[in-house]
């Protein structure tokens, strides 16, 4: 009896969790394989005709292959901004943790401000126009770096505190210059937290909707989340295509989650608790 209780409780919880958390995803997948008439019913009935492949082709071809362009744009934005984030945030976190200076309190304040303060949207657009970065992919990359720096710096600072200073000393004795010390000795040691950073930030940036909506308008610059938003109005009578699109956009984070779920959970909680 004593061993049975946790098992029963586990089963009940599992069922409840499945209903609450899994049903919506099941719903997405189910609608995505239905035909137009089936999906317009919006219900859980088993599809009379599954047309996974047909829906896939239709969604990809919609609006001159807009989804492919969006995948390309989102990937470029994600890869470059995460690369920038990792290098720049690690540099800040490293010096911030290692060297007590009068700048530290300003940097710490800026990090907190970056987490709390909502970005001023229209002034940012105005500024981007002045420097010629509005509606450009590289402008978007720089914006993503600026907005997500704080979180990455927090993760790095906390982790660097656990890297012994003796290693710095040893490298200096061997004649390493600051840049060499950082890139050849320290950065490789930060690999666990770098993986966490890459995973968490790439999901956040790939899923970002608000910033591309403001700073990256125009149909040549669509990102995956924007296609979803555009399709919502276009496909209001073609739910099967809309849900196929959601499914396609959800797959990359899903894959990342399956492989890195430990790092994601660790990173999100560590960053949160230290913040």
């Amino acid at each position: 009896m004593k061993q049975l209780r946790p098992a029963i409780l586990g089963c009940i919880t599992l069922v409840v969790f499945c209903v609450i958390f899994v049903v919506p995803f099941f719903f997405i997948a189910l609608q995505a394989v239905k035909d137009r008439q089936g999906s317009s019913l919006l219900n859980f009935s088993w599809p009379s005709e599954t047309q996974l492949w047909q829906n896939l082709v239709d969604v990809v071809q919609a609006r001159d292959y807009q989804l492919l362009l969006a995948y390309f744009n989102s990937t470029v934005i994600t890869v470059f901004s995460v690369t920038g984030l990792v290098i720049f945030a690690a540099m800040v976190g490293y010096v911030l943790q290692r060297r007590p200076s009068k700048w530290n309190k300003y940097v710490n304040f800026a990090v907190l401000a970056g987490l709390m303060i909502p970005p001023a949207v229209v002034p940012t657009i105005w500024l981007l126009q002045q420097i010629g970065l509005f509606k450009t992919i590289h402008g978007m990359i720089l914006i993503e770096i600026a907005y997500n720096l704080s979180f990455s710096i927090l993760l790095y600072r906390a982790f660097i505190a656990t890297v012994p200073r003796d290693l710095d000393e040893a490298a200096r004795i061997d004649g390493a210059k600051p840049l060499q010390l950082f890139f050849r000795v320290i950065l490789p040691l930060l690999k666990p937290v770098t993986v966490t950073n890459i995973v968490v930030q790439s999901i956040a940036i790939f899923n970002d909707f608000t910033n591309p909506l403001y700073y990256l308008p125009g149909k040549d610059n669509v990102t995956v989340q924007l296609t979803l938003y555009n399709f919502q109005s276009q496909f209001s009578t073609q739910y099967h295509l809309l849900f196929m699109n959601i499914l396609l956009v959800t797959i990359p984070p899903l894959i990342v989650f399956i492989f890195f779920n430990k790092q994601i959970v660790e990173g999100m909680t560590a960053g949160a608790v230290k913040g």
């Binding site: 720049f88 290692r98 060297r99 001023a120 105005w126 720089l142 770096i145 710096i153």
Partner: peptide, 20 residues
């Protein structure tokens, strides 16, 4: 631990977040 390590992040953050 040179202070200019703050610079790349600082410039991006300063121009695109603080100025606006």
């Amino acid at each position: 631990y040179p202070l200019w390590f703050f610079l790349p992040a600082g410039v991006i953050y300063g121009v695109l977040f603080l100025v606006p």
